[in-house]
């Protein structure tokens, strides 16, 4: 058991030392997207822009809300959640996809997850153009500290994503059903999380959203950018999920890191 923990820590330490490598690889793969296309990843931004605009307009109409209020709300929520769900989905399959590389010597598993999260974050960075346009056009009242607060929230979400992405990536090679399960769970969560509707629309059932950790993650990014009130308890919930995710991933990693290459 002691040697298991020791070798797990060694593997993790190597992965942490390779953070610059993961960052370099993520950056390169974005660069290569530009190589044979003029606007590269901005194609994704473009489709996301149309998507959030339509969502915003439709649901502002359906719920009879002001567009200038509803569109920033929907935009921030939908963009952040699609970032979260795409990173979680990709990282849950990353070790299976990188199976050949792992068997050829890249056995520092966390590096692959980090690369996925960095890559997702860089793509999301392209989408901030949409956020800026929406915030300016809809004349959201902003303070100087709102942008740093949103960025801080985003970083905290990234730390969460690394933890949970790592956890999922370790389990899916062994239990192949988990990949599709996670994908469909994330699709369901899209409707259960207040993105197209506001928590207060639930009326006396509003307390239910408090049990949805994703809602709190989103709050950290969304509230500063729509001129809302800061939700301090959301910060605590996010810190707690972060600790839980990393702790679970660490325990699972200790038990499976030696066997993992034989599963892929």
């Amino acid at each position: 058991m002691e040697s298991l923990i020791q070798s797990a820590n060694q593997n993790l330490a190597m992965a942490f030392r390779r953070i610059p490598v993961a960052w370099m690889l993520a950056k390169k793969s974005i660069q290569f997207r530009y190589r044979r296309s003029i606007i590269g990843p901005f194609w994704i931004t473009l489709s996301q822009a149309v998507y959030v605009l339509v969502l915003g307009i439709v649901f502002a109409t359906v719920f009879k809300q002001k567009g200038a209020e509803m569109i920033p709300f929907v935009t921030c929520g939908a963009l952040t959640l699609s970032f979260i769900s795409s990173v979680l989905q990709e990282s849950s399959n990353v070790l299976i996809e990188k199976g050949q590389a792992i068997r050829d010597g890249d056995q520092y598993f966390l590096t692959h997850v980090l690369e996925t999260v960095f890559h997702g974050a860089l793509i999301f960075a392209h989408h901030t153009v949409i956020l800026i346009v929406v915030v300016v056009v809809c004349k959201v009242p902003m303070h100087w500290y709102d942008v740093p607060a949103a960025i801080g929230g985003l970083l905290l979400i990234c730390v969460n994503l690394i933890g949970f992405g790592f956890l999922f990536s370790l389990l899916t090679p062994r239990y192949r059903d988990l990949g599709p399960l996670i994908a469909s769970a994330l699709r369901t969560l899209f409707f259960l999380t207040p993105i197209m509707w506001k928590p207060e629309f639930l009326g006396d059932k509003e307390y239910l959203v408090a049990y949805n950790p994703l809602h709190h993650w989103l709050n950290l990014v969304r509230e500063p950018l729509i001129g809302g009130e800061y939700q301090v308890h959301s910060l605590w919930v996010t810190v707690v999920t972060c600790i839980v995710g990393w702790a679970l991933a660490y325990v699972v990693f200790i038990f499976c890191h030696r066997k993992l290459p034989t599963w892929i």
Partner: peptide
Amino acid sequence: RCLFGLGRGVEPEA
């Protein structure tokens, strides 16, 4: 150091 396959890390577009 190991050389087991030619696919590792090679980025075809680069």
